[in-house]
Design a protein around this nucleic acid. Structure first.
Lengths: 204, 204
DNA sequence: CACGTATTTGAATCGTTCTTCAATTTCGAT
DNA sequence: ATCGAAATTGAAGAACGATTCAAATACGTG
């Protein structure tokens, strides 16, 4: 039994616990006691804070997405060269390995989104934000003359995020030939042709 | 209560029923009685044929994948022009609408594959077969001088399948701006640059 | 057409999970 | 240091799903 906490603190804990429980058992497979165990509490205590488990699960997914997105933004915040930004952004959209928690949580929702409107909105919103992120990088690079775009930056950005997403699934499913490095290289190949930039991963 | 059937016939029915039940409730959310209802039987009867529900679910997913893949192969079987084949293949990899059953079933597995090795293998195998399908088209087109590939046909094929997959998720999640037409056009934009072919959708 | 077998039902049982709630404990405020 | 409110427990009960199995039934075969 973990020590007593304030309402706000406990809710944060529970969201974290729910996130871990989802990764272990799947969004559909999580049970109240799984979350309770992860949090070091009783089922009753969880219910005291979240009378409806499904609401807690939504919050956990929401929090996971925000974390994922914020991490990506932070990674490129201090970079100035658009080419470098693009390379780093592509990397940050891919799982680090087949057990990458951030990506695995997102992948949980792919199927559920077709049945659950709330998850559909979450996932769609995340996609759009990531597309906007790429678009900013591409447009800036084009304005600076670093990139020579072969087409609409929206289309390119949508394709880039799509590629990340799909390779994320392949990697978390343990494709024997496609790991983070191979996926990054495949996406970079695409990025090179549409930007006209060699996009070397800058040493630092 | 549907009329009595032979073992073989009933098993086929049950796989179909399981497929529908999965689409309604999710791979993790399906219960024995859901499958029984879809089949017009009792839970006991389902158990008589499949003592282990999870095995039936695996078979349902397997059957769904085979159907999906075979349909794609059949669509291009009678076409000879590589450019036309490529256009048709891209289309056949995308859902027809947000409620496309074939794609929705595949999407169900994305998350589960990270936790379940059997599903991971199924999904990975399907991916590889689709990549091989594209590769054949690209290599043939290149040999005939119809395509001028900008790079390795494996990489291009992997990217094409990846794009299909990801847009499939967006469409089934009801993205307000991305439907089958938009997705196809985005993928075609990529295909055009890497093949050097205008890839007009042939009228017929 | 009657027999025997394979299929299906329906009910009983068991285990699990959710839900409720009174009792207890802890902590902060006074 | 005490009081009161908030958090947590643990047990009891309700609901649900899986599982088992004897009985009923339909079907093919001889």
């Amino acid at each position: 039994m973990s020590s007593r906490k304030s309402r706000a603190d406990r809710r944060v804990d529970l969201i974290e616990a729910a996130r871990r429980a989802i990764l272990r058992h799947g969004t559909q497979g999580v049970h109240l006691h799984h979350v309770a165990e992860e949090a070091g509490l009783t089922s009753g205590a969880v219910l005291y804070h979240y009378p409806d488990l499904s609401e807690l699960l939504v919050e956990a997914h929401h929090a996971g997405m925000e974390r994922f997105y914020e991490l990506r933004v932070k990674r490129i915040a201090r970079l100035s060269d658009p080419a470098e930004k693009l390379v780093v952004t592509i990397r940050s959209g891919l799982p680090v390995g087949h057990d990458d928690q951030g990506v695995r949580l997102l992948n949980e929702l792919g199927g559920a989104a077709a049945r659950n409107r709330v998850y559909a909105v979450l996932l769609t919103t995340l996609y759009d934000r990531q597309v906007a992120m790429y678009q900013t990088i591409l447009d800036t690079g084009a304005a600076l003359g670093v990139f020579t775009l072969t087409g609409d930056s929206v289309v390119i950005s949508r394709n880039l995020v799509a590629l990340e997403d799909a390779y994320g699934y392949r990697i978390t499913a343990r494709h024997p030939l496609i790991g983070p490095d191979e996926a990054a290289e495949n996406i970079l190949t695409y990025a090179r042709t549409v930007t006209g930039n060699t996009l070397q991963a800058a040493a630092h």
